[in-house]
Structure formats: C-alpha cells, structure tokens
Design a protein around this nucleic acid. Structure first.
Length: 571
DNA sequence: GCCGTTTTCGGCCCGACTGTTTTCAGTCG
C-alpha cells in the first residue's frame, strides 16, 4: 500500500507550510487530504488508475495532480522546495511540548536558532525573554519540554515499528537465497516502545545485506558490522539489527535473540540444573547441545515446560509459573468475536453505519458497537440526545438489513471535568454499550482525575472506561491518575477497563492490564476505529493483553453476543 | 487548497488554557 507513505508526505507539506507562515487553511487542506488517504480501504494507486481520485473527499484538482506526481516519481516537487526553505532542526522544534509552528518560526527568524540544542542554550542564556510576548516561564517550559523529548530518545511505538520491520522482512523473503526471516527481540515480544528492531535471517550474510542497501530500508548510518550481524540506524529513528544464522542453528539464534536476557539466562540455568547443558560434544560451549534440539517448543519440552509464548518471555515469573503448571492459556487473535468501540460518520469517523457493520462482518465478527462521541466534544462533532435518537433508528435499519452481524448501539460519553457525564442517564440507559472517557481537563491533579473516573464508574449505565490513562505513546504521558484506586473501583462496580488498541495509545498498558486481571476486573480490547483500516489494529491490543497474561475469559469481546449482552445488562 | 453555493467567492471546527499581557497570540485536543 502506498497510502501511508503518501499521507506522510502530505502531512510533512502541511507542517512545513505552517512553519513558513502560509495560509493555515491551505496547510490544513493537505492534512485533511492526508488523513483521507490514510483511511482509504484500498490502495490509492488503484483509485488513481480508475480515475476516481477526485471523488475522495478533500482531494481537488491540485492535490489530485500531486498524488499523480508522487505515484509516478515517488516525489513531490513542492515538498522538496519546502524542505529547502526550512532547516530540519526547526521542524524538530515543534516536537517540544508547547512549541508549535509559530514559535519555532519566530525562534528561527528572530534569533537565528536552527536546532533544539541551540534553542536550549538560548533559554539558559535568557535570550528567549527578549522576544515580545515571552517571559521566564516560557524559557523554563521549553527547557522542561526538551528534557522530556530527550528522555524519549529514539524510541518508536510498536504500531509504527511493526510495519517497518515487516516490510524489511518481506524484502528479504523475496530473495531466493534467503531461507527464513523472523522478527526477534523486543519486537517479537511486542514491547510497546522500541529503540531497536531485531531480525534473524538465514541464507544470507551481512556483507550481502549491506550490498542490498538502500533498497532494503532508509538508512541513516551503519553503526557496526561483523561476521554474523549488522547494525544500522534507520532514518525513522530506531536502530535495526539483522543477525545472520547458519541453517542448522537458526531456531537457536532466534530464541536467544528473542530474549529477554533475563528469560534466556533463567532457561539456560534451568537446563544446567537438569544436567542437559553438559550432554553435548566435548569442548563445545555448555549450551551447544541444545542446538541439537529441533526448535523452541522442543527446548521447553526438554526442560519439562509447556511452550512459553514470546510475549511473556520477560524473566518475570513465567518460568516459575510454567514449572508449577500455572501458565495461563493466553488469549489469541482468533478468539476475538467483536469490537466494542468504533466510530462512524455520525461523529468523527469516516464509515457509514452499514460500512462499519460490513467491515466488522468481513473480519468474522459477530458484533460491533458504534460508540460515537458525545455532544461536548464539538471538535469531533459529538452527538446530542436528538442526534443519538436519530442514529438509533439508523442502527435498527442496518440490523434489519444485515443478518450476519449485530450492530450494537453504543456511545463514547465524555466524563466532564466535575466527573458528571455528558449525556443524561435516560439516554445512556437506551444504549447497548456505554464507554466513558476523558477528553478534557487533562491537567487536573491526581485527586480530581481519579475522582472523575471513579464517579463515572459508579454510574449504573457505564460499562467500560475508555483509554483509562489518556497517554499517547511517545508523545503524551498518562494524566495524573491513581490506577490502583481506579482498578479497585472497577472491581467493586463491575466496570470493564479498555485496552485501546490504537497504535497511538495502547491504553491500558500491559502492567495495568495485569493488575486489573488480578483484581478480577474484566478487560475489553477495542480498536477505537474511525476508519476501516483501523479495525485491523486489534492485534496490537491483543499483544498488550498477552503481555498482561490475559486469557480468553478475562476479555469480554471474546465472548458470544449472548454472553456480552448479559454482561452489559447486569450492572 | 477544497468545497458548496445565497455557484466562481468566502468560509473552513472551536473552545479551554497558558503565559504574557492589560487585550491577545499560540498551543492543544
């Protein structure tokens, strides 16, 4: 699919236009078009070939031409020109919280600052306050913002890393000499943020991989290379390490590279304890005999253990649990029978209700809940009581028409700053599913935020708390909320907590989801999809659930429609 | 730059919050 790359080019144009102080509405047109392309259910090239690109909302004559230019040359001249006009460091500055395009541009234009380092120095030398409208507070906030940015380092979210790694994997798989390629390391264990993408490959050596660059990946620099591995830094930030293994020891290399180091050490210690490590040929490393085992499953079997899935190989008690026969049967993607939080055109989604239902049916689901935003979220075209009633009629019509899926009527109701809900109880009572979420007042203190969510859970109509900590991976920290108390209240009131599978969120995270499970709280894995492609993000939420040791029973949307309906009506 | 029309121009999503001001500009969701 070309869609993501093209959308990214349009987003970059929009950012650069804003930095250049161009008409913000023009810039926004690029951003809107980028979003539209990102959400297309098919490859933009096919639509373009059919001559239907102008039918995509937000794409007119000028942008249609740029789509064509990009498809034929893989470049947009206008973007190249913009890149010449603004130093990359100035673009970087807008990543600092509190610094937008206007400020970055002023720092550049009025003080000649072209990098984040220079900006920090200017703050410390009290130069920013010489600008009109800036004071000591501004300088302090910028320094704090820069520190927060540095702490995040070059990590990228799982949802961004996976497609990058899979593309490289697909490239390698196409080579005739390559026998096998797998994801390894933090990526295979599905950690939420990654600073290194690991791959293991057999049939090709590092020298040959080097010769395939740059067709393989966008490489910033080569960090290291030796006989059996190569490390690069990708332009998108993270490192990439490819380990080349001999065919006969492929699985062994993959197993070691999957880690974590604690898990590997614990397994090897157990092997030694069982006397297995010394069975091998004389003079070899103690662990070498294990190479004679055929694969990962056999390795664990040899040690008297069930297979330990990669997601929980953290060295945090999984071996002990396995030895005691207490390893849970982790929930699988194929267990998922529905999605209980999706948006439609009624608020800020792009699908009609029927399109949403059909898309969910195509995924083999039994049910899907439309949970559009409520009235106070005006930016997202939130629904009033009247519009919600009208939507309900629309839902009934779709359900009468389709017999392979049940469209549930839901709502994502805002938890207002005082903890009350954005819609009256009477209308919430009419809905099948009520997701309550916070979208405002992020800066309240821990007491206020915790009380808001706890109050919402006390409402008998609230079934699920949506994205409970409000974080955006790599961009915004969770708001101050006491999850311990939230989980306690969820258990007490029988409210489910959401694992929001959006690649930007993954909220709850694995730690909180595990704590919820232990407190007896049910989890729902929702995609929060606003478009058809986003329904496919379910696997990301699932990886969080697996890392949290969740089973099918813990996850509401693995249950049948009947069971889900019973659950939703019992509170 | 798009779009719809009271159709070739004028509006485009908008309100809360912050830090600086003393009436506002910029950021953020």
């Amino acid at each position: 699919m070309n869609n993501i790359a093209l959308a990214r080019a349009f987003f970059e144009i929009a950012d650069l236009m804003e930095l250049n102080g161009e008409n913000p509405f023009r810039a926004n047109a690029y951003r809107r078009a980028g979003r539209a392309i990102e959400m297309l259910p098919e490859d933009v090239e096919e639509i373009f070939e059919r001559g239907e690109i102008r039918k995509v909302p937000g794409i007119g004559a000028a942008l249609a031409e740029k789509v064509g230019e990009w498809l034929s040359t893989n470049e947009i001249q206008y973007l190249e020109e913009l890149r010449q006009q603004v130093p990359p460091g100035v673009v970087e500055m807008t990543k600092i919280a509190g610094v937008g395009p206007k400020l970055a541009r002023r720092f550049y234009a009025e003080l000649g600052i072209t990098t984040i380092d220079e900006l920090e120095k200017a703050c410390r030398k009290r130069k920013i306050r010489t600008l009109r409208g800036m004071g000591a507070r501004t300088e302090w906030n910028i320094i704090r913002g820069i520190q927060a940015l540095r702490e995040r380092g070059n990590q990228i979210p799982l949802g961004v890393a996976l497609p990058v790694a899979r593309e490289i994997q697909a490239h390698l798989e196409l080579l005739p000499q390559v026998k096998q390629v797998d994801l390894a390391g933090d990526l295979r264990r599905r950690r939420e943020m990654l600073d290194k993408l690991d791959l293991v490959v057999t049939g090709i050596d590092p020298e040959e991989i080097l010769s395939l660059l740059p067709g393989l990946a966008e490489v910033e620099e080569i960090i290291a290379k030796n006989a059996d591995s190569i490390r690069l830094r990708l332009k998108s930030g993270p490192e990439l390490e490819i380990v080349a293994a001999a065919p006969e020891s492929y699985w062994w290399t993959l197993w070691k590279a999957t880690g974590s180091s604690e898990h590997v050490a614990q397994v090897l210690a157990l092997a030694e304890e069982r006397g297995l490590a010394v069975v091998g040929k004389k003079g070899l490393e103690p662990t070498a005999s294990l190479v004679e085992v055929l694969g990962e499953a056999e390795l664990y079997q040899l040690l008297g253990l069930p297979f330990i899935p990669p997601e929980i190989r953290e060295g945090e008690g999984e071996l002990t649990a396995a030895r005691q026969g207490l390893l849970p049967q982790l929930v699988e993607l194929s267990d998922i029978r529905g999605d209980l939080h999706c948006h439609s055109r009624w608020s800020d989604g792009v699908m009609t209700l029927e399109e949403l239902a059909q898309a969910a049916a195509a995924k083999g689901y039994e049910y899907v809940a439309v949970c559009d935003h409520s009235q106070s979220l005006t930016v997202a075209n939130g629904l009033s009581v009247e519009r919600l009633r009208a939507q309900h009629r629309d839902i009934q019509e779709v359900n009468e028409k389709l017999d392979n899926i049940q469209l549930l009527s839901g709502i994502e109701v805002d938890i207002l700053t005082d903890g009350s809900l954005d819609l009256p109880d009477s209308i919430l009572a009419e809905r099948d599913v009520v997701v309550a979420s916070i979208h405002s007042g992020f800066r309240q203190d821990v007491e206020q935020l915790t009380m808001r969510v706890m109050k919402a859970m006390e409402n008998p109509h609230v079934d699920i708390i949506g994205h409970p900590t409000g974080r955006l991976l790599g961009r915004r920290d969770p708001y101050a909320i006491d999850m311990e108390r939230v989980i306690e209240m969820a258990a007490k009131t029988g409210t489910a907590l959401e694992i929001n599978a959006s690649p930007d969120r993954l909220d709850l995270n694995d730690v909180n989801a595990q704590a919820a499970k232990e407190a007896g709280v049910k989890i729902v894995i929702n995609t929060d999809a606003h478009s058809q492609p986003e329904l496919d993000n379910m696997h990301l939420g699932l990886s969080v659930a697996r890392r949290a040791w969740l089973t099918k029973d813990n996850v509401v949307n693995t249950w049948s429609l009947k069971e889900v309906k019973e659950y939703l009506s019992r509170k």
